[in-house]
Computed example of a mutant assay.
Amino acid sequence: MFLIVGLGNPGKQYEHTRHNVGFDCLDALADQYNISICEKKHKALVGKGVIEGVKVVLAKPQTFMNLSGESVAELVNYYKLNPEDEMIVIFDDISLAPGNLRIRKKGSAGGHNGIKNIIAMTGTQNFMRIKVGVGEKPKGWDLADHVLGHFNKEDQAKVEDAIKDAICAAGMMVQGEVDRAMNDFNSKKQEA
């Protein structure tokens, strides 16, 4: 079984912001594989289903981003999962341009508070992740204003393509094809 977590903030005012791209990826994944994410438990909205023949639990923590680890740790413990082999976290990355993905088998938090909290609460940084590029903050902007803001039309189109790529990557990763997913999706997209 795999736990796939999409990070974001609960609440209408945060829908489709840069920081909620993990939620958007999870919603798209759920649509693709006919999984309903509506059960409230473990401080998350949860749905169970099958992706490419593998049982999965999809989770959108409802703790707000900086406390995502509280929900993730509960899910890992409840389902008796090894986060190092059976968990994928999908989240926004400001160091990647919109439309780009970076897939990693493990790594540090890289300044992302949601990931920092997951590492603290699960006791490991060795879990798979799909980072979705949302672009750097403009000079002089507050980081919170940037990540809680919405994409312009051009960037939104690029991010929608990245979400489709993230779905494909997750499908490969649950089948144990992490290296293939990294090879297919870690290259930078060229500016058109």
Score class of each variant (00 low, 15 high):
residue 57 V to C: 13
residue 24 D to N: 06
residue 58 L to C: 01
residue 87 M to K: 01
residue 69 G to H: 02
residue 52 E to K: 15
residue 81 L to P: 07
residue 73 A to Q: 13
residue 53 G to R: 09
residue 61 P to W: 01
residue 65 M to F: 06
residue 81 L to E: 08
residue 53 G to S: 05
residue 86 E to S: 14
residue 55 K to G: 03
residue 81 L to K: 10
residue 46 V to Y: 05
residue 52 E to N: 15
residue 48 K to N: 14
residue 73 A to D: 12
residue 77 N to L: 11
residue 72 V to I: 10
residue 38 C to F: 11
residue 34 N to I: 07
residue 23 F to L: 05
residue 20 N to K: 02
residue 63 T to R: 10
residue 42 H to G: 05
residue 51 I to L: 12
residue 69 G to M: 00
residue 50 V to G: 02
residue 43 K to N: 11
residue 57 V to K: 00
residue 58 L to T: 04
residue 54 V to D: 02
residue 83 P to C: 09
residue 21 V to W: 10
residue 41 K to Y: 12
residue 82 N to H: 12
residue 26 L to T: 02
residue 82 N to E: 13
residue 22 G to N: 02
residue 29 L to F: 10
residue 55 K to Y: 07
residue 44 A to I: 07
residue 69 G to W: 05
residue 26 L to Y: 03
residue 52 E to C: 12
residue 44 A to N: 01
residue 55 K to I: 00
residue 73 A to E: 14
residue 68 S to V: 06
residue 54 V to R: 14
residue 51 I to V: 15
residue 33 Y to I: 03
residue 24 D to C: 06
residue 30 A to C: 03
residue 48 K to Q: 14
residue 31 D to H: 11
residue 65 M to S: 05
residue 68 S to A: 13
residue 71 S to R: 06
residue 80 K to G: 09
residue 50 V to E: 15
residue 41 K to N: 12
residue 48 K to G: 00
residue 61 P to K: 08
residue 66 N to R: 12
residue 28 A to K: 15
residue 85 D to H: 12
residue 69 G to T: 08
residue 30 A to G: 04
residue 82 N to A: 10
residue 25 C to E: 08
residue 76 V to L: 00
residue 47 G to N: 03
residue 84 E to I: 03
residue 21 V to Y: 10
residue 53 G to L: 03
residue 65 M to A: 01
residue 46 V to D: 05
residue 71 S to C: 10
residue 82 N to R: 13
residue 36 S to N: 13
residue 25 C to R: 04
residue 45 L to V: 01
residue 47 G to Q: 06
residue 28 A to P: 03
residue 53 G to D: 11
residue 80 K to H: 14
residue 23 F to Q: 05
residue 62 Q to A: 12
residue 66 N to P: 10
residue 51 I to S: 00
residue 45 L to N: 11
residue 69 G to S: 03
